[in-house]
Design a protein around this nucleic acid. Structure first.
Lengths: 166, 166
DNA sequence: CGGTTTTAGGAACGATCGTTCTTGACTGAT
DNA sequence: ATCAGTCAAGAACGATCGTTCCTAAAACCG
């Protein structure tokens, strides 16, 4: 069956998640992918079809390996403060970037992103017993804190405030 | 002094704000700028130096004409709900996109963005009499709602909830 | 072994990128 | 009326983009 692959496809996809989560889609060139992922051009196109194909695979991997565990842990959250801490301490760089810069121009990305955000909303609504719009507001808050870059200060301040309410 | 300009520089910059606020920096080509802005290539480079130069000017115009009025109106906000409504109903597309996709790779953009966000935080903290970290959390919430795309539903739900607290 | 498949390495493709240059028409000031 | 400076229109630059092709070495199968 021919020579075996010299690269671990899982590792490559995971490295792509990191790379695409770090800068904009158009800011990551195929040369960047080739040099940082340890895969040759040829193998990359053979395995993933195209740059966009790899991006979509990386996005889905990100959702499966980073967002789904978050959903599981959120299901056990009993109050808004812990739910907020869970989301803001998660690694959601790629989801955030995809939501703001790829979703508007790639409907397949948009579908994945909106589904993922809706799933987070739903789990929070179920776990906390709040209306879905309010859960969506909490998700939005967490995303906003993440995009500001310094999650710890703001997240702790808000978590403390939320704790004093209940 | 030669032939006068056939384009209104203010209009061009404002159109650039819209264009750069709509998609990622690398997704807006100079051809796009030339065709949508009504300025010839030559005039664009003569007037703004480079694509990045026009971007920075557009960003600063956005801060001066869209963010500064928001600061003024926020100064009169008496509660968190109205502050939230003010921010989420503002047009902050370019600021949002700049924060998440340009600031990480352009320190001059990063400086403008962090200064603008800090200014919003400060005004909110002063107007509501809350700690700056909590004001930053409210700013983050508004930004998160904006990036989710459907601000009305979520913003009203959260505003109603915030109203019941006081 | 021989055959086949897939790899690695890298050159090369056309397209598009941001930027500059060329040409000539136009207009305001001298 | 002349001149200087800016304009519009578009060709053209080198660089880089995503993608494909070519060649040869490597490793599995029979």
């Amino acid at each position: 069956m021919g020579r075996p692959r010299a690269f671990d496809e899982d590792e490559v996809v995971r490295a792509a998640v990191t790379l695409f989560g770090g800068r904009a889609y158009d800011g990551v060139s195929v040369d960047d992918l080739v040099s940082h992922l340890g895969v040759h051009r040829n193998s990359l196109y053979k395995a993933f079809g195209s740059k966009r194909g790899l991006y979509l695979i990386a996005l889905r991997r990100h959702l499966a390996e980073d967002v789904r565990p978050l959903l599981d842990s959120l299901a056990d959250a009993s109050d808004a403060a812990t739910a907020l801490r869970l989301v803001t301490s998660a690694d959601l760089d790629l989801l955030l970037l995809a939501a703001i810069e790829r979703a508007p121009v790639d409907e397949e990305v948009a579908a994945e992103v909106t589904a993922a955000l809706a799933a987070i909303d739903r789990v929070i609504a179920d776990a906390l017993g709040v209306p879905s719009d309010l859960a969506a507001a909490l998700t939005a808050t967490a995303l906003g804190i993440l995009l500001r870059g310094n999650p710890d200060n703001i997240a702790t301040a808000l978590a403390q405030y939320l704790s004093t309410l209940t």
